[in-house]
Simulated assay, not measured.
Amino acid sequence: MATTFDKAQELNLDPAIYGTFAEIGAGQETANWFFRASGSAGMVAKSISAYDMTMSDAIYGKSDRYVSRQRLQQMLDHEYAILLERLGPKRGKTTTFFSLCNTVRARGYQDTGECHGWVGLRFQLKPGDPPSDIFIHVRLLDDETQEQKQALGVVGVNLIHAAFRHRGHLGRFVSSLVENLRPGQVEVDMLKFHGHGYGFFDNRLCSLALVEAGLTEAAMFRPDGEVVQAAEALYKKPILLLRGSFDPVTKLHLQMLEQARGVFSSALEPGEEAIELCEMTMSNLLRGSAVDHVDFIDRCDALQALGKT
């Protein structure tokens, strides 16, 4: 397994890869790895960190929540557009451009809140291609701020390296995200591919791969199949949950939900609606010692056809 330094240096020395870094909330730890390694001028076009909210809003626009996928999307849109505008005419024919952005809440002074962040990579599969996106949500589990920052930097390097070296193998991609980290340092609870080259990719398999690899305990999809980060989707919402194998979905499942909904609704505030979740455990999905991915997708399709999350 290559060290984080080795990965950074390998990418620095690849003449086709060039891009920008924008990191908010936990230092500039990803960019720092590339600066420490030799040849950073061949990889890093710009590194920025707009910590102040007013400065950040002036660059990326306002956002309801600063550590959110919405803010990450704003950062990627801005940074990648500037990169192409300024460097595309000069080296666009020979360069695969990228922008790595993150927005993070690390441990602050006397802070006891959840430490987590969104990390995104917008990149080209080959020179001149439309962009592709990879989004991950990370929970930082170390108690000390410095350790959280170091872990985030390693994850950032791993993400860039995996995007350019392992994107053709999902299992290898997922496992590489936490290379050179101790067990329990981070949890990666959402992974999504989007854009050019991923139009027919089923991101539900990404979520399953995260659970299989032990990077997270749960994954969540909306009725339309959209992969979401559970804590964000369920934030301050009442939840009605039905656990089962759903192999197949039966009338009994639907009747149980209907009866429970009637009782649960009476306890809610006027106008408040519960989110209904149908939960499958990994033990429900095992066929022998392995998970049948086709069977998993079939069960998800059946539930989602009924409008279930």
Rank of each mutant, 00 (worst) to 15 (best):
M1D: 12
T4M: 09
Q9C: 08
Q28S: 12
F34P: 00
R36E: 15
S56F: 02
A58S: 11
I59D: 04
S63C: 07
R65G: 01
Y66V: 01
R69M: 06
Q70H: 10
Q70T: 02
Q73Y: 02
E79G: 03
L83Q: 05
P89F: 01
G92E: 02
S99L: 08
L100C: 05
N102W: 02
T103F: 09
A106G: 09
Y109F: 05
Q110E: 06
E114N: 03
H137T: 00
D142P: 06
E144V: 13
Q150K: 14
L152C: 09
L152P: 01
L152Q: 06
A162P: 06
R167F: 00
R167V: 03
S176C: 12
M190N: 09
L191G: 06
G195L: 09
F201P: 00
L205Q: 13
L210M: 10
L210G: 04
E212D: 10
A213N: 12
L215M: 13
L215W: 14
E217M: 08
E217R: 15
A218F: 12
D224L: 07
Q229P: 00
A233Y: 15
K237R: 15
I239F: 07
R243L: 03
D247P: 03
P248N: 11
L252I: 07
A260G: 02
V263Q: 05
F264D: 01
A267H: 09
E269N: 07
G271C: 04
E276D: 05
L286H: 05
V291T: 11
V291G: 08
D301N: 15
G307P: 13
